[in-house]
Structures are given as C-alpha cells and as structure tokens.
Amino acid sequence: MNTQRTPPGGSTGSHPNLSQLTENEFHDQITLRKRKTPDCDNICFELFRRELNNTMAAHRQELRNTVQELQKSISSSFESLVEKQNESIRKLHEDLCTLKSEVNDLKLNQHSIQKEHNDFVADLSKQKNDHNNLCEKTKTLECDLIDAKKQIKELTEQQNIKDQQGRINNLEISGVPQTKGENLYNVLHIIATKIGFALSSADVDFIHRVRRFTTKAPRNNLHTHEGQSTASSVPNIIVKFTQRKRKCEFLAAVRARRGLTTADLDIDGASSPIFINDHLTPHNKVIYARARRLGKELGYKYIWLNDCKIFLRKSDTTKSILINNEKDLDRIK
C-alpha cells in the first residue's frame, strides 16, 4: 500500500518562507497541516522566532536611532535654551548690578538731600526764632518810639512855651526897609511919635534885625500856596522892652493908630505897610498863619493876637476861642 505524503489538491507541503504569508495563510498552514513529527514543528517555530527576532531587532534599532536623534535634538535645544537663559541671566545680573549702583547713588543723594533738608529746617527754625525775637524787639522799639515821640512832642511844646515866654516882652516890626548905617533906635522913636506913644530909653532893652521867618503849613487839606507867607529878604526888627506892660501899651497904640506905612517914617520910595505885632516863636507863627487862613475859610469875624496868644471869634455875640496848638485848630473845623 502506497502512503500518500502530499495533501489532496496537488499541494506540495508547507510554504518555504513563512514570513511572507498573511496571518490567515499562516494559521491555515498550521491548522490544516497534519503534524507528522515533532522536529518539523520545532523548525517552524524556530524560523518564526528568528523572523520575529529579526523584525523586533530592526524595530529596536530604528527606535534606538529615533531615540538617539530625539536625544540629540533635545540636547541641542536644551543647550540653546540654556545658553539663552544664561545670556538672559548675565544681562539680568548686569542690570541688577547697574540698578544696585544706581540705588546706592540714590541712597547717597537721599542722604545728602536729607542732610540739606535737616540743615534747612535748622536754619528755618533759627530764622523763625530770629524773626520772633526781631518782632519782639520791633514791638519794643515801636513802643519806645511812641513814647519817645510823645516825650519829644511834650518837650517841644514845653520848649516852645519857654521860648515864647522868653519873647513875651518882644515886638516884631516888619516892612521897614533896611538902609546902610541905619539907627534902629531912631526908627523906633519915629514910630512911637507917629502912634503917640511916649517912649523913653529905659523902655528898650535892645533892638536889632533878624532874618524874616518863612512859615510853611504842614501837609493838610490847605493849599500849598496858602500855607506859606510872602518871603522877604528884608530882615525884621525885634524890639525887646524892659517891661511887659510897656510893650503891651506900645502895641495897643499901634493898633489904635492903624495903617502905619513907610511914608509915615519919611522913607523914600513907594509907600508900603508896616506891621507891628507880638514876637512869636516859629511854631506859633505857623499856628497863627493856619488860624488866619482857616478862620477866613470858616467865616470867623475876628482873628487876633493878645500878649502872644492866638484868639478867634465867630461873631460879636460868640465867645472867643484860644488856640494853643494844632489840635485846637482841628476842633474848630
């Protein structure tokens, strides 16, 4: 009996290269083929194992190559990143050093500014104290100045009173022309004869000429030209009587005579009025000039001098007002 070693259908046996079979073909070869001997299975398994190992080795090598390339790429990228990071750190370090230097400079400037500020505050405090002390001194000086002005005013008034008392026996004659080699005693005797006054040599203490005083009113509501009397280069004649009584009698005779002129003294030239009055101090002359102007403005009928005192009276029926100083003038406005 012939034993048939090939399967029906003309198949010649297992495929010589199992790695070229598909999975289904591979399983068909395994399941359809009759297992004849253990050695054949071992051979097939060995072939499969080898093919599998080769395939896995190829895949491992490919994976190894891919991993190496990836490692190289990562390493290169990391190195580049590290280099960039190091460069950034270096720049940051430089900037930090610069900033630290600037901060130190700023601290030094701040210390300097703080010192200057402290010095300024100290100077300001000192100036404030000096200012307060100066204010106190100024207040003290102002008080002292007020007291000094008050004392000066009182002393001036007292001196004016004394000066006027020293002139109480004096008469002042203005309007008499001055001639070379003149004899003022003769001029006075001529005036006494014209007014009908019996003048003796014992009545006169002395007689002389003085510069005529030009009065100027203080700055007030009066006009400037009204505050200044007519200036004259001719010195006035001052007569000092030995007795106050005789002076008053002489002045009363002058006022009774009225209208005395240079023609009455036989003086050559155009006739001009001669004025004889009490010899006032410069201060009282100013007050008298103001009283005359103010009295005329306010309609006072009488303004006169009596024994070196200034009087005003509004009318014949009103009382006379004594003017001692400028305050009295302010009260009659």
Rank of each mutant, 00 (worst) to 15 (best):
F45Y: 09
L18D: 03
G13V: 06
Q165W: 04
Q85P: 00
R33L: 06
F241G: 09
P7W: 04
Q68D: 13
R290H: 03
I43T: 13
D130K: 12
A291M: 10
I321E: 08
E46R: 14
N325I: 05
D203I: 14
P235M: 02
K327L: 04
H189V: 02
L322N: 13
S229V: 01
R331K: 03
E102R: 15
T318M: 04
N104L: 12
I267G: 00
K137I: 08
F48C: 11
A58V: 11
R5I: 07
I173M: 03
E69H: 14
L63V: 14
L260V: 01
E79S: 12
A202I: 09
L81G: 12
T37L: 04
I323N: 02
L52G: 10
V210P: 13
N42I: 12
H27G: 11
P282I: 00
P7H: 05
R50C: 10
D163K: 08
N132L: 13
G259E: 09
D268N: 05
L96G: 03
R293C: 04
L171R: 00
P7V: 03
Q164I: 14
D266C: 13
L260Y: 02
D105Q: 10
Y302W: 05
A270W: 06
N220S: 10
R255K: 07
N104C: 06
G227L: 01
L171G: 01
R64L: 14
E249H: 05
Y302L: 02
P177N: 00
K296I: 00
N183K: 10
I303H: 06
N284C: 04
A256K: 14
T262S: 05
T179P: 01
V67P: 10
S125N: 09
V176Q: 00
D130R: 09
T31N: 11
F250E: 03
K36M: 03
F250I: 09
G181W: 07
D119L: 12
R293F: 01
H208R: 15
S315D: 14
I190R: 13
S232T: 06
F311K: 06
F48P: 00
L47P: 03
E69Y: 08
L21P: 05
N186Y: 13
V210E: 15
S76F: 06
L106N: 09
D264R: 02
Q114G: 02
L199I: 07
K314M: 08
I89C: 02
A256T: 15
Q29A: 07
